[in-house]
Design a protein around this nucleic acid. Structure first.
Length: 275
DNA sequence: CGAATCTCCTGGAGGC
DNA sequence: TGCCTCCAGGAGATTC
């Protein structure tokens, strides 16, 4: 399931397309999280890709030309992947969306579970409902202990749910929520507003560290991630807690426990992580 | 407002 | 081998 490091890795992998002009668009299966706009095959051709940015787990591809201007928003959901192909190879079952460029390369979205999204934004990007109320980027300076502590001040829910809420901080998915809480020695059920500033400091640091490490791993597996079915780098890394039910804690050796929190599998060490 | 629950979807794993 | 059930999950929508 694509987490922030994988989305960022995807973004970097697509940068060679910047400056290229769209030749055509194919929509094979328009029903993703929301319908893919049916006008894209008319709207995009002849526009130039100006840049590719990332906000949270959204990829924002800005296009402009004599016939228009807008942002193609892409989201990978949980099973999506974007391939950069040198040629329009025959599409497979779950290849729902292509953007073909004049140079011959093709951006292809594959998403078996169809939780992903392809949308077209016009007007002021920051005012779009999906982007307007997002919290800070976890790797930027705006995400710091003081900010987190105040953002949690009136929240009594479990800290794990809090850091997975995109209004608090974006880009922390289920895997890294468990991992960063383990590394911070914070029990996932701890009421968010009971964390001291000092523990917020630790948590912020571990979220940044965990994401940086995953990003480094994802970046090094770019070739695996693009064009093949190889697993992205972070799946190959060894987790401290995630998906390690009953396996020995890497710190104290006691079995890792699992629980449901906010409908999500949660992994932790009952001995190392304190409320 | 906060918090909990529901929802979309398909592939893979496990049971019989 | 086949069929059934259950589970995974990002995050917006809905409900309380």
């Amino acid at each position: 399931m694509p987490e922030l490091p994988e989305v960022e890795t995807t973004r970097r992998g697509l940068l060679p397309l910047v400056g290229q002009v769209v030749a055509s668009v194919s929509i094979r299966h328009p029903r993703l999280r929301w319908p893919i706009p049916t006008h894209l095959p008319q709207t995009l051709p002849a526009l130039t890709l100006l840049n590719i940015r990332r906000r949270a787990k959204y990829l924002l591809c800005e296009f402009a030309g004599e016939t228009g201007h807008g942002i193609l928003l892409l989201h990978l959901g949980m099973s999506g992947r974007i391939q950069l192909l040198d040629d329009a190879y025959p599409a497979e079952k779950h290849d729902h969306f292509d953007v073909a460029f004049a140079g011959g390369q093709v951006l292809r979205l594959r998403d078996p579970r169809r939780f992903g999204a392809v949308l077209w934004l016009e007007g002021v990007e920051a005012e779009h409902p999906l982007l307007a109320s997002l919290g800070p980027e976890p790797l930027e300076d705006g995400f710091n202990a003081r900010y987190l502590h105040s953002a949690l001040a009136n929240k009594s829910l479990a800290i794990k749910n809090a850091i997975m809420d995109g209004h608090v901080v974006v880009g922390v998915g289920n895997i890294y929520a468990s991992e960063s809480l383990f590394r911070s020695r914070i029990h996932p059920e701890t009421p968010a507003n009971s964390l001291t500033l000092k523990r917020c400091e630790k948590l912020v640091a571990e979220i940044k560290l965990t994401l940086h490490e995953a990003l480094a791993a994802g970046g090094s597996s770019l070739r695996d991630f693009f064009g093949t079915d190889g697993l992205p780098g972070y799946f190959q890394q060894s987790y401290f807690a995630y998906a390690r039910t009953n396996e020995p804690c890497r710190v104290c050796g006691r079995p890792i426990k699992t629980m449901r929190l906010g409908q999500r599998s949660t992994f932790y060490c009952a001995h190392c992580q304190k409320r």
